Amino acid sequence: MARDLPAAEEFYSQVLGWAFRPTRLGEEFSVGFLDGTPVAGIGALADSLAVAVAWTPYFAVDDADATAARIHERSATVAVGPLSFGTGRAALAADRDGAVFGIWQGKAIPDWSMGTDKAPAWLELRTRDAFEAAIFYAEVLDWACAQPGCCQVAYEDDHVVLRHQGDAVARITGGAVGEAPDPHIRPRWHVYFYVPDVDFAVRTAVGHGGRVVGPADPSGTEDWVTLRDPDGGLFTVTSNDPDPALAPRD
């Protein structure tokens, strides 16, 4: 979610090399493409929906209304929706620890994917209790079910790792503090984007009004930096393959 769609498009096109196209969701939405592959969407709705400027993961569901009901049943929050948007229905929610996520019923973009060299590298949920969060999302989003194409959940290297068709696409890490003022500590979903050159992406971001909020890994074995865009949205750029360790952490 952004406040100024053209400004956000300009920033991310310069920093991440995306080209933007309109969508069937309306003139307030656009999708960023890298070499013809859809990477992420931007919606200029932060002010009208009274939500923070942020990158938010949207999880595909078969029935947005049934999923929203499951979220309510488990004492979490559905803040917006489900509402009809173009070709589908969507809702914005928060889990029991306050981490914001979305759900989407329908198909807006073909070949949307995670974990490839042009798509977002992966997602990370920083939360209070990783095991408890994994149970919540598995129940709400049908993870680790018996259906074909279902995501698998495993405990690997002190994290809960979500895999789709064998590829690691998300990690859940415990230890976040719910009342902490620092967004690096509060429970939240965080997105990592691939770039071919982290230093170039950082210099370009700063030159276009962004700023660095997380240093590169002090071990020197990983190449990643966390940035804040001019509107305040947090994201991390990385040049590393996330699987199997999904190692960078900020």
Results as ranks from 00 to 15, higher is better:
M1S: 05
M1I: 00
D4T: 00
A7L: 13
A8I: 03
E10G: 04
Q14L: 10
Q14R: 15
G17W: 04
G17N: 05
W18I: 01
R21C: 00
T23G: 06
L25P: 00
L25Q: 08
G26C: 05
E27T: 07
E27A: 15
E28R: 06
E28I: 02
V31T: 10
G32D: 05
F33S: 03
G36M: 10
G36T: 07
T37K: 09
G41W: 01
I42W: 06
A44E: 11
L45Y: 14
D47C: 05
D47S: 14
A52I: 04
A52P: 03
V53Q: 08
W55Y: 08
T56F: 04
T56K: 04
T56H: 10
P57V: 12
A60P: 00
A60E: 14
V61A: 10
D62N: 09
D63V: 04
D65H: 05
A66R: 11
A66C: 07
A68P: 05
A68M: 02
A69L: 07
H72Q: 15
A76S: 02
T77D: 08
V78E: 09
A79Q: 02
G81N: 04
R89N: 13
A90L: 13
A91V: 07
A91M: 10
A93G: 00
D95Y: 02
G98E: 07
V100P: 03
W104A: 09
G106A: 11
G106R: 14
I109G: 03
P110V: 12
D111Y: 06
M114Y: 12
M114K: 07
M114N: 07
T116W: 10
A119L: 06
P120G: 08
P120D: 11
P120W: 10
W122V: 00
L125C: 05
R126D: 07
R126H: 02
T127I: 08
T127M: 04
R128Y: 00
D129S: 01
A133I: 02
F136M: 04
F136R: 04
Y137V: 08
E139V: 00
L141N: 02
A144S: 15
A144G: 01
A146L: 08
C150F: 14
C150N: 12
Q152F: 12
E156D: 12
L162H: 01
Q165C: 12
Q165R: 15
Q165S: 11
G166M: 11
V169S: 14
V169Q: 03
R171L: 09
I172D: 02
I172W: 10
T173M: 14
G178A: 12
E179T: 13
P181E: 12
H184I: 11
I185Y: 11
R186P: 00
P187H: 05
P187S: 04
W189M: 06
H190G: 14
V191S: 15
Y194T: 13
P196C: 13
D197M: 11
F200L: 15
F200W: 13
A201W: 02
V202H: 01
V202I: 01
V206Y: 00
G210A: 14
G210Y: 10
G214I: 07
G214V: 09
A216I: 07
D223G: 05
V225K: 01
D229T: 13
P230S: 13
G232F: 09
G233L: 09
L234T: 02
T236E: 06
T236K: 03
V237A: 14
S239L: 13
N240L: 09
P248V: 05
R249P: 01
D250M: 13
D250Q: 12
